[in-house]
C-alpha cells in the first residue's frame, strides 16, 4: 500500500517592503499596511472585516460605545482594546483632551453628574436605552481592535511560516557591502585571506 506523502507546509516569500512603515500604516488604518505592501487581497479583506466589525459594533451600541475615560467611577477598560483599530477609534482620545466635547457627541465620554443623588447619570441612561446592545457593541468594537493587532504583526513580519523577501533598499545596501561571509563556509585558505588583506589595510589608511 502506498504511503501518503508527508504534509509539507508551503513556504511563501513575501515582499514586506519596509516592515516598519507597513506596521505603522496598519496601526493607523486596518489593512493600509497590506495595501502599501501590494498585498491587495489581504489588505481589502482586513479593511472590510475589521472596519466593518468596528462600525457595526459602534452603531449597535447607539454610537456611544467608543469613548475614552479614566475617571475613578468610569474606567473604560474596553477602550484599551478598541484603540488598536487606529484612526477610527482615536477621536475618543482627542475628546479627552478638551473640557468641552467637540462636535455632536462624537465619541465623547458620558457625563457622570447626577441632578439628584438617586437620579441616573448619562452613562446609566445610555445603558437603560441601549440595554444589551451597549454591551454587544462594546464587544464588537473591542474584538475589531484586538484583530488589528494580529494584522499589524502580519504587516510587520508576514504570515506565520513565510520568509520575508528583503526590500529593494535592503538589497541595494547588501550590494554595496558585498556578499556576506556565510557561517560554515569552508575557509578558502591563506591565499584568499591574503587577497582580502590589502583592501582591509586600505580601509584603515
Amino acid at each position: 500500500m502506498a504511503e501518503n506523502p508527508p504534509e509539507v507546509a508551503a513556504v511563501h516569500e513575501v515582499d514586506l517592503r519596509d516592515p516598519l512603515v507597513a506596521a505603522s500604516l496598519a496601526l493607523l488604518w486596518p489593512g493600509a499596511g497590506h495595501l502599501y505592501q501590494r498585498r491587495w487581497a489581504k489588505g481589502i479583506l482586513f479593511l472590510v472585516c475589521i472596519v466593518g466589525t468596528f462600525l457595526f459594533g459602534w452603531d449597535l451600541g447607539g454610537q456611544k460605545v467608543v469613548y475614552a475615560s479614566w475617571r475613578p467611577s468610569d474606567r473604560r477598560w474596553p477602550y484599551l482594546c478598541q484603540v488598536w483599530v487606529g484612526l477610527p477609534a482615536w477621536p475618543a482620545l482627542v475628546q479627552t483632551a478638551f473640557d468641552q466635547p467637540l462636535g455632536d457627541d462624537f465619541m465623547r465620554a458620558p457625563s457622570l453628574v447626577r441632578t439628584r443623588h438617586d437620579a441616573p447619570n448619562e452613562l446609566d441612561l445610555w445603558h437603560q436605552k441601549y440595554h444589551s446592545r451597549f454591551e454587544m457593541g462594546t464587544v464588537f468594537t473591542m474584538i475589531a481592535g484586538l484583530l488589528n493587532i494580529l494584522v499589524i504583526f502580519d504587516a510587520a513580519a508576514g504570515p506565520v511560516g513565510s520568509s520575508p523577501v528583503p526590500s529593494e533598499q535592503q538589497r541595494s545596501k547588501k550590494k554595496r557591502k558585498g556578499p556576506p561571509a556565510e557561517k560554515g563556509e569552508p575557509d578558502a585558505g591563506p591565499a584568499a585571506r591574503d587577497e582580502r588583506q590589502p583592501a582591509h589595510e586600505e580601509a584603515k589608511r
Binding site: 466589525t53 464587544v139 494580529l150 494584522v151 502580519d154 504570515p159 506565520v160
Partner: peptide, 27 residues
C-alpha cells in the same frame, strides 16, 4: 442574541486565517 455571534465568528476566523496564510484558498 446568539445571531450576533455569527458575523463575529466569521470575521474572527477570516482575519485569523489570513494572518496564517498568504493565498486565498488556504485562507
Amino acid at each position: 442574541r446568539l445571531w450576533y455571534s455569527l458575523p463575529l465568528i466569521v470575521t474572527v476566523s477570516l482575519v485569523y486565517a489570513a494572518t496564517r496564510h498568504e493565498d486565498l484558498r488556504p485562507i
